[in-house]
Write a protein that binds this DNA or RNA. Structure first.
Lengths: 319, 319
DNA sequence: TTGTACGCGTTATCAA
DNA sequence: TTGATAACGCGTACAA
């Protein structure tokens, strides 16, 4: 009987049709809960976000990523369960609970950290996962990676081509892999261009942090002529700090962001930034995770690299 | 046996202790799935967001609201299942599916619309809900409402007190209840102050929409001296449009936003805006929904009203 | 190829 | 107050 409904072989065509018709006539729907109990599957995947709530609101990544993931999840009748935790300890509990309760069949691992302990944790509790980006520790999980380095490298190269020689960086927290990667890409490109690495200040991806870092950068004796920010939010705050000091952007200072948020194109001047496809990332990550759950190994997948979007916040340095 | 574990009455203290000890010793954990099947509960609540993905990323509301809701959900061992749908039709399917599959025990109803059909739908499929704001149609669901009118009214009154007489409004879509409410509050306050209602342009809460509306407003023969925007994103774009035309803010044009996003305080000039507590809203909404699901009726609850935050984007009009 | 009976791990009911 | 037993509804192994 269930063979017929699940479209499995070993059933006569006529019988199958008869059963399907009866099911439809009765308005019968398979019970998700019974299926879950019987097959010990949750038919759901999880995403735990561990960021301070005030920072969550400003980040354009999660909403887009989630929308992308949802786009494939709905088709497969899978639900997305969300978890928001304030700090690191709560985070581990969160994953353990999700697994112990059988709430999800797998999770997305975002905001990868340096020497991320979650990888070992998930392997230990055998909760399938997909990592967003390639971890720096051994991992048996498939990774869906977007090359952020080339985007940052393109931004720095763009500034170098314009004639800048003192190019600073306002980075994200160093314990985040993407924070570290972007920073490394900035430094590497500078060195490759034969330029001395400029100053790098670590901020926290917030507007307040971006403003603070910018002030510190501008307060030095020989301030940079260009600043590469690790996200648009900090770049926007940096732009305001420059204006507040009467520093013309891009005339006296060039700045670049990262994310290409919707507002970036509508700032004054419009922001030169690096675009990543969070929506597409979500789609591919969801497909990869679902395949993994279904027992199909799944190799790492490489997404199109982040693209530099040149707008008007960059120009040759003042003579 | 389960009585003991669930802490229900009708069990001898000693027996309960004995059972609890045995359970711990065996490392036994109640099976979420079996409980769900047996009690026909999902132990989860739902939130469906029906916005175009590109708009989702810029909105600070959902992340904060979700974080707030999560704060109370975790304590009650309830999960949050998220759904993102592109349009109106998909939306109805989404709710029906959630209910039919028994994926959730109730939902949050956000982005209330004029004559919102979802209320009747949810009542029909008897899926408990909590509305964010008070609907304009009959509803049996508890509403958790934040008074947005007084925030907008305060913003308009602030501008009037500064001496402005031509105060325009860039509204959100008219079919959204909050869009309509903010617009009505703006108009009402103007009329009450004995001023002719200024121009009102309807945009879509996006930066692009805000920029377009601002250009149109500034292109008229007698442009406004102040613009009240329905959200920070549009106000930020409006600010850029003013700069692009060499119009000084706040010297020649005052602007106000709505949301008090993190970036608002870090723009140049810092944005005068209206603050709502989305995190708190999420907490209260979750509590109300959970109570409703538990069979406790629950009356409408009124949250603290939105507050005007005066910063530097507002000043007396040019003489 | 088809029908049947049992297991999944709870909650709920009913005797004892 | 306690213990045994029947649902809950689907997957599946096994017998017909």
């Amino acid at each position: 009987m269930s063979f017929a409904l699940n479209g499995r072989p070993g059933v006569a065509e006529e019988t199958r049709a008869r059963i399907l018709a009866a099911a439809r006539a009765l308005g019968w729907t398979p019970s998700h809960r019974a299926r879950a109990l019987s097959s010990s599957r949750a038919f759901a995947v999880g995403l735990v976000m561990s960021r301070p709530p005030e920072l969550l609101g400003a980040d354009p990544f999660f909403p887009s990523f989630i929308a992308g993931a949802e786009a494939v999840l709905v088709d497969r009748q899978e639900a997305l369960v969300l978890q928001v935790v304030p700090g690191r300890e709560a985070e581990e509990d969160s994953y353990r609970r999700l697994a112990a309760d059988g709430r999800v069949d797998g999770v997305f691992l975002t905001d990868l950290r340096v020497d991320d302990p979650r990888i070992a944790l998930l392997e230990q509790i055998s909760l399938p996962a997909v990592t967003l980006g390639r971890p720096d520790v051994d991992s048996t999980f498939p990774a869906v990676v977007v090359d952020e380095r080339s985007g940052i490298a393109a931004a720095v190269a763009h500034l170098v081509a314009l004639g800048h020689e003192r190019i600073a960086h306002v980075a994200g927290p160093a314990h985040f892999l993407h924070g570290a990667t972007r920073r490394a890409a900035w430094e590497r490109t500078l060195v490759d261009a034969g330029l001395p690495p400029g100053r790098c200040l670590v901020a926290d991806f917030s507007a307040a942090g971006g403003a603070r870092a910018t002030r510190e950068l501008l307060d030095t004796g020989e301030p940079p002529t260009a600043i590469v920010y690790a996200n648009d939010l900090m770049a926007t705050a940096g732009l305001a700090v420059a204006m507040e000091r009467g520093i013309d952007v891009p005339g006296q200072l060039s700045i670049t962001g990262f994310d290409d948020t919707e507002i970036a194109a509508h700032l004054r001047p419009p922001l030169t930034t690096v675009r990543t496809d969070a929506f597409g990332w979500g789609k591919v990550a969801a497909r990869t995770l679902l395949d993994l759950i279904d027992g199909k190994p799944g190799a790492d997948v490489e997404m199109p690299p982040a693209q530099l979007v040149v707008r008007a916040s960059t120009a040759p340095p003042a003579p």
